[in-house]
Each structure stands twice: as C-alpha cells, then as structure tokens.
Design a protein around this nucleic acid. Structure first.
Lengths: 214, 214, 214, 214
DNA sequence: AATGAATGAGCTTTCATTCAT
DNA sequence: TATGAATGAAAGCTCATTCAT
C-alpha cells in the first residue's frame, strides 16, 4: 500500500460540506469575496498598511459598506485566519484518515500543509504567519485554540512515528523545525517553476526521516 | 580536529572593530540605544503599530528629538536591519574561517545564525523577517544586496558539501528549508529552557546531513 | 456711443452659466463655501500661517473633513486661484465684447480688474498676488498658463490702442505699470469711502491716456 | 537747471555715515551679512517657508548661533525691514534736497524708489511688501511709523506739484497708484535687459504728469 | 560667540468608523 | 444593504527656540 493524496474532488466536496454547514463562508458570496480580497491585500501590503478603502475598492463597494458585512477591520482579519485554520484542519484530517502507515500519514501532513500554503490558501496562510500581531489579544487566544487542535494532528502522527523509530528527533522539536521550513516556502516557491509540489513534499519528508528510503 | 565555535571574546572584539570603523553604531551611544529599542518595539508590536512617540519614550527623549538622529521612522527601520546584516555577515565569515572541514563550516553557519536570532540580535532578525514590507522599495533593494552577500556564504559552503556528498538535497533548496527552520525558532525557542543552543544547532545539522555521523 | 459697463445681471448670469458647466464650483455648496473661507483666511493671515484647523472651524466642520473635499491644503490654494482667474477671464471677455472703441474697451478692462480686486473676488485676487509662492512648481506652471490667456486680453487691446495713437508707452510696459497700480488698490481702497469704483477706474485710465480727453 | 540724480559716491558716503552712527548695521559684519541673506531667502521663499536652519547654513553658522545675534526670527524680519526704510528715507531726502523744481524732485523720488527696489535693496523691499503680515502687531505699528515719515516726503512734493498744476490727480491717490506701479516692477524688471532704470523712471513720471514734456 | 543635542507645541494628513439618507 | 459625507483621534514630522558645554 502506498501514499494516497487528496484528490481535488475530495477537496471540493469537503469544502462544499463546510460551506453548507456554515462553518466557512461561500467564497462566491459577497462576504467570501471580501475575505479573499482581504487576504491578498493583507499579504501583499500588510494588515496595517491596507486601508479599508483599498479593500472596499477591490470588491467594488464603498468603504462604509464594508461594515455591513464585518463589524471592524479587525473582524475581517480574524475571519481570514479563522476560516483558513478550520478548513485546513478538516482537509488534513481527511487526508490522514485515508493513509495507513505513519510514514504515509506524515507525508500527507506535509503535502497538505504545503498545498494550503502554496496553492489553495497561500495568502491566508501568509496572513496567519505574518499578521499575527495584528490580532488583538482576545482574538489571538481564540485562534490559538484552533491552532492547537491543528497542531495536535501533527503531534499525534509524529509521536507515533517516533515510537516506531521512523524519526529520531523529539516530535515537538521536529514539528517546529518543519513548521519553519514549510511555512517559509511561501517566500520562495514558484508554482510555475520546475519543482513540483510533490517533489518538495518528498524532499521535506526526507529531512525528517533519518537515513531512510530516499 | 573538531568544530570550533566563536568565543565570546572573539565576538566582542570583532564588534568593537566594526564600531571603530564606523560600520555599525556603538550600542551605548544615543543612536545605538535608539536602534536597540526600536528593534524590540518593532519586533513586539510591528513597525506600523509602533509610534515614534512610544519609541521616544522608551529611550527617554521627546518624539521630536528622534529626528535629530534619524531623518524618518523608515530610516530607523533601515538602520536596524542594515546594521544587523552587516554585523552577522562579519561574524559568520570569521566563524567559517576558523573551521576546516565542510561539515564543521556548516555547523558554524547554523550555530551563528541561531545565535544571531536567539541571543544577540534576535529582535533585529525578527524585524528583518517580519517587517520587510515596512521598508520602501529603495531600501528593500539596498538591503537585498547586503543579504545576497550573506547568503553567498551559505551557498558556497553548501555547494562544497554537496560535491563532497555530505548533503544530498540541492544546495539552494536545502538552504531555503534551513532558513525557514532556523528563523522560525524565534517563535518558540526559550534560551532559559532545557534545550541548549548547541543542541539545537546539532539537531538542525542532523536534518541537513543525511544518514551520517550523528 | 459711450462706455458700457457690465450690469450686475450680466455678471450673475455668466457666473451661473460657469457653475452649470462645472467650470467653477457653486459658492453655496460645501466646496464653494470652503473656497471662499480659505480665500479670506489666506488673504488675512497668509497661506502658511493659516492652519487647516482654523479653516475647518471657519466652515464649521472637523479638520479631517476638509480632505474629503480637497486632497491637500495646497489643492485648496490652487482652486482658490484657478477658479478666480477662470471667472475673471470670462467676465472680462464679455465686458470687452460689448464695447466698441479701443478707449472704451480699455476702460472695460480697468473697471473689470478693479471690480474683481475690490468687490467681487478681492480676497482671491490678493491670494493670487501675495500667496503665489505657496503654490508648488507644478501648480505655478498650471496657473501661469491660465494667467497668460488673461493677460493676452489686455495686450490685444493695448496693442490696438497703441497703433491708434491712443497711448504712447509700449503696451507691455504700460500693462505692467497698470498691473501694479491696480492690484495695489487692494491695500488702500475703501469701497465704502468717498471714491467710487468708476471714478478710480476713470483716474487710472487717465494715467494711461496721454494728454487726451479727460 | 535740470534733474540731478544721486551719484554712487553720494550714496556710499551717506551709507557710511549711517553705519558710523549705528543707525544701520555694517553689511560686512556678521549681523549685516545675516540680514542680507535673510532678505534674499525671505524674498525667494517667503518668511514662513524659510527656516532658521536654512538661514544659518547660508551664512555658515549653526542654527543655534543665530540667536546670539537676534533674539528671534521675527526680530530678523523686523530688522530687515526697518533698516531698509531708514536707509531709503535718508537717501531720498538727500536726493530731493539737491533738486530744485517740483518736477525734478518728483523725478528724484521715482528714481530713488525704483533704485531701492530694483538695484540696491530689492530683496529687502520685496520683503517689506510681501512679508508684511509676518510681522507681529507691535512690529507692524513700529514699521508703520517709519513708513509714514517716508511717505510724507512723497506727499509734500506731490502737494506742491498739485498746487503748481503739474499734476491733476489728487496727490494721495496719485501716490497710491504710483506705489503700486513702482513696487510691482520687482516682478518683471530685468536690470540686464534693454530698458534702463532711468528710462523706466522717465516713463513712470510721464504717467503722473498730464500732457506735459514727454 | 559658537555649538548641536534636545525640546515640545503644533503642523498636515490619514483612516477606521458612524450614520442619515 | 448600500452610500458617502463627516468624524475625531492619532499619526509622522517640522521647526523656532533653549541651554550645557
């Protein structure tokens, strides 16, 4: 049995379910397009340097109208981040569940995270990393709780791999090294370049696995 | 012969020389203390959210007096970043020069970078990573040139290690994975915790070296 | 046939047309009242010494709201000056057109200019003369182009009068002497005093016409 | 007997006397050079837009040192204006005294005023006209008293000429028209151009004299 | 007299947010 | 929901003036 990635059909079906449940907003709705635009602007220019006027212009409304959708600029930032974590947690859970061995599960985690950063929700993930301090304390705490759940998925797999002797570094430290290595890719990886996402995932996996199959 | 780290005496001597040359400002001077305070505030609250009034208060002067030392807030940011790259490039060069084998040189790079991020110039390095967009285009280009020189030190060593079969990933990709892994440490590493810097450097090195002596 | 001045009905009709065309802003609108207030303050205290807070207070709004109407203080100055030249050029053209002889046309020019300085747009004309350097280079050039058109009206008439032997000084020099004599009146003429505007115009005309009928 | 202008020897002798008396400061002293530089800068950029730093730089000292010479920027402006009026009043008095007829005296007044504006103290005279509002109330009153004395010289001659039938406009009105015509010359007259100062004075005189000798 | 670092009040401008329509 | 004029607090920066040296 070998590694099974998520198909794009699975991804879109799960996304559809989450929209139907109301967990995340429909990206085609006004609120959804607003969040997408916000993520791009926040990523490109930073949260502070992005004005609500720019954001409003981007979605074709007046700045005052923004506040009918979200109570404040801060609330927009929170939603960008929150929805992204929720979505990616669900996607990752699904991807893990359809792989059996620890190594395949680990590969699933790495590929999922790279995909979220480099393809699907790259702007949003950048915002999460670089605009964290734009969130007020209350929102930071709230997001942290969601993030803990996401991280637990990683730690569970890494612990298992550690016990199996698949990895030798302590799981919590390895996770932190991987977090950095993966999230930094947003600053250099070119989706249209020679290196495929799967190759990058493979390379990243090879860092983690000591003297093993690759 | 084994790995020789920089002694703190070497570090302070080199720093003293750079101050004497005028390459970096004396951290005990008014301008130097201002830069230190700025780095801390920019790191903690972000460049945009830090006001010149806060910064002035931190140094114990009036906000107008800041502009006696630096022409603009932007100029303060540029100096924080520029001086840090200059200093760390010099330190790294010295550290490489006193190690012989590729592996020891690689260890020197990793330890130097961790040290600069976690101990000596942690605030400044965070600012470099997280406040990059706060620099205007002109300053970004200027800093980029300095950064290229710094990165070349890494690439030279990694290329050599690659040819020696010490590492198997392509040097430029490995460097990027390591950049992320190392710089992220600022977000979790506790200098007063159980994990020593040397251990962390060792672990990071072990990621890079595949199935080799450690 | 003798000299025919502009009636106040003609003046207000033409002004109405220019407002309708969008050439000048309605003095009763917010933007228009702002311009009027700015002209008075700039004239009384100078452009530099007038703060946007004073200006806002004068119009009964908050200082930030000014920038809803004009992008900068400089832009307010430009509009004060620009609209005044545009209006007075049109009025002068109309007044010339309804007089036949060179002498009557010359009288029309003098009376129009005095009227614009002493009655209708006195503050604005003072601003034009005394706050010229408050305009940045780009705006100076723009205004200069409008002013050239205005001055051409004068030169055309003066050239004609010169050829007819009505005046003996070179037209361009005479114009300059008259410009000074007329514009200075803002510093001493009292509209409620004994000297009527028509008398002053007559006296000024007598300077220009040498040893002729008056 | 015909019109006798001031010789340059007379001018410099009188200036020397006034310096010796302490009425005006020596233009070669530090204080004197400072006033000259201030006049030029105030004229070119306006009083408000000229900073004490610029002014200090112009005379080769530090901004703080200015205040050893003059107590405030305002005081510098006052001195520029005051000394100029004092000097020009004296020069004019001398020039009148050496002419006999009303017409020659009138010509002396005009030539003196043009000379002061266009040659000797042009910057200072511009400052007097255009930076008047930069003076505080107290200083305005003080300067006004000096100016009244200067104006009285004009009015005395003009009254005499009026009684002799040499001019027909009321003296106070004629003076005002001439003030404007003459002072405006600073904005257009080119000392290196074709028109000599004497010709311009002659032309200006011809405006005043009705149907007479020219 | 001269320096130059420091002051601190005040400047123009920005911008998230409100609210009557 | 949407508009857009208005708000008002706060930002970065300027600059005449002071003062210890």
């Amino acid at each position: 049995m070998s590694f099974t990635p998520l198909s794009s059909k699975q991804t879109s079906e799960l996304t559809g379910q989450l929209i139907a449940q109301g967990t995340i907003v429909d990206p085609k709705s006004a609120k959804g397009r607003l969040l997408k635009a916000a993520a791009r602007l926040f990523r490109d220019n930073g949260f502070e340097r992005t004005t609500v006027r720019e954001l409003a212009k981007e979605v074709g409304i007046q700045s005052g109208s923004l506040f009918h959708h979200y109570a404040s600029k801060q609330e927009i930032l929170r939603n960008v981040v929150e929805q992204t974590i929720l979505l990616n947690t669900e996607l990752m859970q699904l991807s893990i569940s359809q792989n059996q061995t620890s190594q395949d599960k680990l590969q699933a985690l790495i590929l999922c995270e790279l995909q979220s950063i480099l393809i699907d929700t790259g702007n949003e993930m950048s915002v999460l990393v670089y605009e964290w301090r734009g969130l007020n304390e209350h929102n930071q705490a709230q997001i942290l709780a969601l993030r803990d759940k996401y991280e637990q998925l990683w730690l569970d797999i890494l612990n298992q791999a550690y016990q199996e002797g698949l990895i030798t570094l302590q799981p919590n430290i390895l996770r932190r090294l991987l977090t950095g290595a993966i999230s930094w890719s947003v600053n250099w990886y070119n989706p249209k370049g020679d290196l495929s996402l799967e190759e990058l995932a493979q390379m990243t996996l090879s860092l983690a696995l000591k003297g093993k199959n690759n």
